[in-house]
């Protein structure tokens, strides 16, 4: 596994209106092949950090680099190698699943043969193929989540950013997604995701960061963080 840094956050801070710092001086680094868990309670600043990484949220303090490119100064270079799956994906509801996936494939300029193969692979894996011709508005939350996941994998990103990816997924799909994450990492993709499901994070991640009231309170490899305890114990201790 190579050691190339794919995502680097340096002293990132974000204040919302009213001068309350939602995120305060966050620094972390995600290398290729990492599955990096980002853990914190509700409102700790996870989504604020993730939205800044993917270029959706403007920020003034700090620097975020993806594959060596600045999110602020070279957003296009960053977005070309990143895929983002929000916690509650707002897809185009009046498109069919296949229309939406083709739209994403067009955005990333994926040739027809490759896109067909990738869509088939992942749609079969998530047992979604037969529903791809239906309007997304008719999908359940989990099905929408699956479409968002397939759309994120269609261009084989270097960095996969997921916000609470397991919410709404059935156990089988959760298992498949974990498998996909491992498969991507073995190919050198870096995965960065937020979650509340600590036992999943503990089994899945090789690195983890715990964020509390906008500040990183612990970060490092799973072993360094837990020191022989469970992640749940470590997290609750950090929260006190």
């Amino acid at each position: 596994m190579s050691e190339k840094v794919i995502l680097e956050i340096k002293h990132y801070s974000k204040s919302y209106k009213g001068d309350v710092k939602a995120v305060d001086d966050v620094s972390l680094s995600v290398q290729s092949g990492d599955i990096y868990g980002f853990i914190g309670h509700n409102g700790a600043g996870k989504s604020t950090t993730i939205r800044a990484i993917v270029g959706v949220l403007d920020f003034t303090e700090g620097e975020i680099l993806i594959d060596g490119h600045s999110v602020k100064d070279e957003p296009m270079e960053c977005k070309k190698v990143t895929a983002y799956i929000p916690d509650n994906p707002d897809l185009y509801e009046n498109m069919t699943g296949i229309q939406y996936l083709n739209f994403i494939a067009d955005v990333f300029n994926i040739d027809v043969k490759t896109r067909e193969a990738r869509i088939k692979k992942y749609a079969d894996l998530f047992e979604l193929t037969s529903a791809l011709g239906d309007l997304i508005s008719s999908y359940s939350h989990g099905m929408k989540q699956k479409v968002a996941i397939i759309s994120a994998l269609i261009h084989e990103p270097k960095l996969l950013v997921l916000d609470e990816p397991f919410v709404g997924l059935d156990p089988k799909a959760t298992f498949k997604l974990k498998e996909i994450m491992h498969e991507l990492c073995s190919k050198g993709t870096a995965v960065f995701f937020s979650t509340h499901v600590l036992d999943v994070a503990e089994k899945l991640c090789n690195k983890v960061a715990i964020i509390k009231q906008g500040r990183i309170v612990q970060t490092g490899t799973m072993e360094e963080i837990t020191k022989g305890h469970s992640l749940e114990e470590t997290f609750l201790e950090a929260e006190e």
Binding site: Y92, N94, M95, D134, L135, S137, S138
Partner: peptide
């Protein structure tokens, strides 16, 4: 230019009543 075309096509499809009519099974 290409990205603009791709996005325009998606925006039109996503608001097209014809597209909904064509693919919905809800009478």
């Amino acid at each position: 230019m290409r990205e603009g075309k791709v996005l325009m096509r998606a925006l039109r499809l996503s608001t097209s009543q014809l597209n909904i009519f064509r693919y919905t099974s809800d009478k």
